[in-house]
Simulated assay, not measured.
Amino acid sequence: MTERSDFAAYVDARWPDLVGGLEDEGVAGDRARLAVAEALLGARRSWERRVREEQVDVTLWAEVRERAGLAARPGEPVPHAVRPRDPRDGPEEWLERAGRTRAARRRRGAQRALVGLAVLAVLAAGWSWWAGRPDPPAVREEANPLPVHWYAEDELHLQDVVVELPGLEAFVADFTDDTAVVARLRSGEVVRVDAEGELQPVDEAPPALDTVPIPPPVRGIGPYDALVESVPLAGGGWAHLVDSARRAGAEDDLRQSETGRRAVVVCPTEWTCEEPVTVVADGTVRLR
C-alpha cells in the first residue's frame, strides 16, 4: 500500500497472518483474502478510534472469522507468523475487489430500498383508496312483486333484493344478465348492480342508458289510464308503467297522483298484454 498511515502499516504487516490464519482453518485462498479485505475496509474509517479503544488484533480477527463463516472465538488474537510475507501476494488487489463488492452491495441495497418505497407508496395509495371508498349500499332480501326492475323512494328493486341507492339518475336492464341493471348515479359514476345488490364500476355506459325508447302503441290499458314510462324486455315485448288517475298527458306524466292507481302492464307482443300488476310505493316510481 502506498499511503503512509497506521492503518496501512497494519495491513502490510498483518495481511499474511490474517489470510494464512483462515487458510489454516480450511478456508479457500480467494475466499480468505476477500473476507480479510472486506473486514479491513469495514474497519478503515474508524481505525484511529479502534486502536485507542480496542485490541484490534482481537476484535478484527473475530470479524474476519465471521466473514469467512467461522466461529468468532472472542478474545483470540490474530495468529502470528503463520505465513512469510510475499510481495507478489499483497492486499491491494483484494482491497480494490472488496471495495467493488461493497459498492455493488450498496447499490443493490439502495435499489431494494427504492423498490420498497415504491411498494409502500402503492400500498399506501391502495389503502387510501380502500379507506376512502363509500360504504356499500344497504341490501335486503325481498321478492319483487313486479315483473320488471323498478326504483322508488331511493330504493332499487331487483328480482330478489332491494338496494338502497340514493341519487340514482337512470338505469337499464343488463341484457347480458337480466337479473342485473346498469345505472348512472348523480355523481356521474356508472355502475353495474348485480342480482345480490353488489356494485361494480362500468368503464363505458351502454347506449341504452342514454336512449329514450319508443314503444309501440299500448293496447293493454284503459281509456282513463295515462302512460308514464315504457321499457323493452330482454326476452322481447315491453313493460309499461301506467297511472289510472292521469288525464292531462305529457305535462302531467311526471306528477304522481295521490289517489290514482299505478300499475305495470307487460305486453309480450304489440297485440297481447298481461293483467296489470299494482305498484305499491310512495313518491315517484321509475322503470329506467
Rank of each mutant, 00 (worst) to 15 (best):
R100N: 10
S187P: 08
L146W: 04
Y224W: 05
D177K: 06
R65I: 08
A281G: 08
A104G: 01
L123A: 15
R255M: 09
P79L: 03
A32D: 04
E155C: 10
A62W: 03
Q159A: 14
R44A: 12
E229A: 11
R286W: 07
R45D: 15
R107L: 14
R108V: 07
P223E: 07
L227C: 01
V115R: 15
D194H: 13
T284R: 03
A104D: 07
A143K: 15
Y151M: 08
A208S: 07
F7S: 09
L254Q: 15
E169A: 15
C273T: 07
L41I: 01
Q200W: 01
G220R: 10
G126H: 09
R261Q: 15
E198A: 11
A62C: 08
W150P: 10
G42S: 15
V242W: 02
M1S: 11
V36Q: 01
L165A: 12
D225E: 12
P276D: 00
W271K: 10
A239V: 03
R102V: 09
E142F: 06
P79C: 05
W47A: 12
E169C: 00
T176I: 00
R67Y: 06
R33Q: 13
R33S: 07
W127E: 07
V191P: 13
A9E: 14
V277C: 10
A8I: 01
R67S: 06
P74A: 06
S230L: 07
D253G: 11
A71E: 11
A118E: 02
P74T: 01
V202F: 07
A248H: 14
D243C: 09
S257T: 06
D243H: 10
S46W: 09
